[in-house]
């Protein structure tokens, strides 16, 4: 996912007042897009959300929502939350460090475009193939596992590690989370003026002083906002987890996947409630991202 910052320019005033027919034609120009969005994005989602508050006969009920609060489902949300949180927080920190190193580290000029292109690839290299790559690396017969055993006499799986576990999944998610962070945070780092550092230096402030009192406070909303986007990104991911762990790890997307497939519960309305829960979680974190981004942009203006 490549998300670059957009800054809204002042909207140009469209050509004066027109007769009603012209106005109608103007709106007709966006009709195809609006109809598409309605049919394939908004209505389906809205139906689910409504369905979450209905029983099988279509009557209003809060029963589905109440049934989310069972141990099994709550623990699924909890594990999902943990994986998303840890992979987002770690991804944000490591991605920030990598981006800083490439952009402000005084490295040769080729480093930055190389990192950016690679990040474009890696952030899109999610899903099933990524799971394969990590199985081949850190799986029970993975290459790194084998190498560690053979040359360092270190039994990775003896330590309780498993690629199918919480740690394994988080480690795998980082493979697309870190590059995603690099891509989102790069514009913010570019926005850091060299003169800020120089002004600080001329006033006697050290490098650390600058980082602590100027650079981090300026970057903080962007960092936090990006981390929220990373969180939503991990929370909704299905393919990687499913290909990696099958149904053995109890996280919400997989639970929902199984639910839709009809493997386990086969209770549509509960499924709708599960979906609603996911939208609420990812929606909240995205709202946080948008709010923080708007705040940063206002500060720059």
């Amino acid at each position: 996912m490549a998300i670059t910052d957009t800054v809204d320019e002042p909207a140009a005033v469209s050509g004066g007042t027109r007769p009603r027919a012209g106005q109608f034609l103007t709106w007709l120009g966006v009709a195809p897009f609006m109809i598409f969005a309605l049919l394939f994005l908004i209505l389906p989602t809205a139906q689910l959300m409504v369905g979450a508050f209905q029983d099988a006969q279509g009557h209003f009920t809060l029963n589905n929502i109440a049934r989310l609060f069972t141990d099994d489902i709550l623990s699924a949300y909890w594990i999902s939350f943990k994986v998303s949180f840890v992979s987002a927080a770690t991804g944000a920190v490591l991605g920030l460090i990598l981006a800083l190193a490439a952009i402000q580290g005084g490295l040769p000029a080729w480093v930055r475009p190389t990192l950016m292109t690679f990040s474009g690839v890696a952030s899109n290299f999610a899903g099933v193939p990524l799971a394969f790559a990590f199985l081949a690396t850190l799986g029970r017969i993975g290459l790194l596992t084998a190498l560690l055993r053979q040359y360092l006499d270190f039994d990775l799986y003896g330590t309780g590690f498993s690629i199918l576990s919480f740690t394994g999944l988080t480690l795998t998610y980082l493979y697309f989370q870190i590059p995603l962070m690099v891509l989102i945070i790069a514009p913010a780092i570019d926005g850091m003026k060299t003169e800020w550092r120089e002004a600080c230096e001329s006033l006697g402030g050290s490098g650390w002083y600058f980082w602590w009192h100027v650079a981090l406070p300026i970057l903080f909303p962007s960092i936090l906002g990006s981390a929220l986007l990373l969180f939503a990104n991990a929370f909704g991911a299905v393919a990687t987890a499913y290909a990696l762990t099958g149904s053995s790890l109890n996280i919400v997307p997989i639970l929902l996947f199984a639910q839709i497939r009809g493997d386990v519960l086969h209770d549509q309305n509960l499924g709708y409630a599960l979906a609603l829960g996911m939208i609420v979680v990812t929606g909240l974190s995205n709202a946080g991202y948008i709010w923080l981004r708007a705040r940063t942009e206002r500060g720059r203006a």
Partner: peptide
């Protein structure tokens, strides 16, 4: 180092710290 020189500078683009 610039920190020790005690020389003040004003930049074209102001370079005010936006968080302060």
């Amino acid at each position: 180092s610039p920190q020790k020189r005690g020389i003040g500078i004003v930049f074209q683009n102001y370079a005010l710290f936006p968080n302060l």
